[in-house]
Write a protein that binds this DNA or RNA. Structure first.
Lengths: 194, 194
DNA sequence: CAACCATTATACTAATCGGTATACTGTTTG
DNA sequence: CAAACAGTATACCGATTAGTATAATGGTTG
């Protein structure tokens, strides 16, 4: 009866699972509390609302992802190495918490006026800034990157998201293997013919 | 009173708008029929269900996109030219029917067990086959592409989707301009330093 | 003219939605 | 020991959900 904070953690856990599998609008609060083995007042004791639960879930996982991205992008003397590290941060995170990446993808593509998108917008913008910042720093080292920073950042993000999405739908981890990362980096840096 | 088939077209139109803006689960049938200026029995006369309406909307727009992609990928002697044409098909379609690309993105990233994803899966798979088929044909011409076909197709798709997503959120068509396509193709074919 | 048929509206269902008022725990603290 | 406390359950709220039964249109065709 008194496992204390476990109920909160359980709600965060099953909330992520259900939101990832069925979408935010497709999941009812009743389903969440049933799956967590509690009742609705318990959920509303810990979270202000259904959206509040989502915000906390997003916050927990986004903050960790952003922290790891910052760490991987900080050392930019070696551009190929940093590209490798950034890809590995994304891919390792996706394998570790696939449901978060499912949820992230589902929210990232909602319209700008959507309440759920604005709830995650701060994180989405920060994530883009980290990648853009990396390529801006890289352009200082490699002058021929100048003027292409945002194009590089956007393509880099797209390539990564496409591979993660394929992994999430297939369950095949080889899409995120070191071997794939090497070939992906080669292709990104030197083109598809290389 | 007797504008006849206009009501069906109007339902398809406002259905796309609302599903794109608020998501499938976030849009009620009442909202749709109100926006279309009809009542619910009218909608259920033309479509079997809310999901049936979505399926028809997806079918109409996906079929046109796939037809254009097939046309653009058929001539593969000139790989750079074909890459340009494929990108332009995507980007022109996105400018012409942004709501369809919003809807497509929202459904593409849902889980594999989701009813809405399976409703679109046939189209998603076909789209991927077209791109993969192009790079397989291209590898016959350019032997150093061999073994990298699926990697190329996936990256190509990711780069395009990332740019379309940025356009959809910013409304800035320069993300999809000819100038951008040239630079994007250059980067894709010969790497970010080129 | 009469019968038909596609189309549309009024009015309704049973179920579910997110959220809450109230009361009852067990533990902690004055 | 008593009062306060966070945490949890029973039972409920009004609103909304997807979908429908029934009947009235209107034009078309025998």
């Amino acid at each position: 009866m008194n496992e204390n904070k476990d109920n909160k953690q359980e709600l965060l856990k099953v909330g992520l699972e259900l939101f990832a599998k069925k979408g935010f609008d497709g999941t009812s609060t009743q389903e969440i509390v049933d799956a967590a083995g509690v009742t609705k007042p318990t959920m509303y004791h810990y979270f202000a609302s259904k959206e509040g639960l989502l915000r906390e879930i997003l916050g927990v996982h986004y903050r960790e992802l952003l922290r790891e991205l910052r760490a991987a992008s900080s050392i930019c003397e070696d551009i190929p190495l940093s590209c490798f590290r950034l890809m590995r941060v994304y891919f390792d995170s996706a394998v570790r918490t696939p449901d978060f990446f499912r949820l992230r993808a589902g929210i990232m593509h909602r319209s700008g006026e959507d309440a759920l998108y604005t709830a995650a917008e701060e994180f989405i913008v920060t994530e883009r800034e980290i990648l853009l910042g990396f390529f801006e720093a890289a352009a200082v080292q490699a002058g021929n990157l100048r003027g292409k920073e945002s194009l590089c950042a956007l393509s880099f993000e797209g390539i990564i998201n496409a591979h993660i999405a394929t992994y999430l739908h297939s369950g095949d981890e080889s899409f995120l293997s070191d071997e794939t990362v090497y070939r992906l980096r080669q292709q990104f840096l030197y083109g598809i013919y290389s």
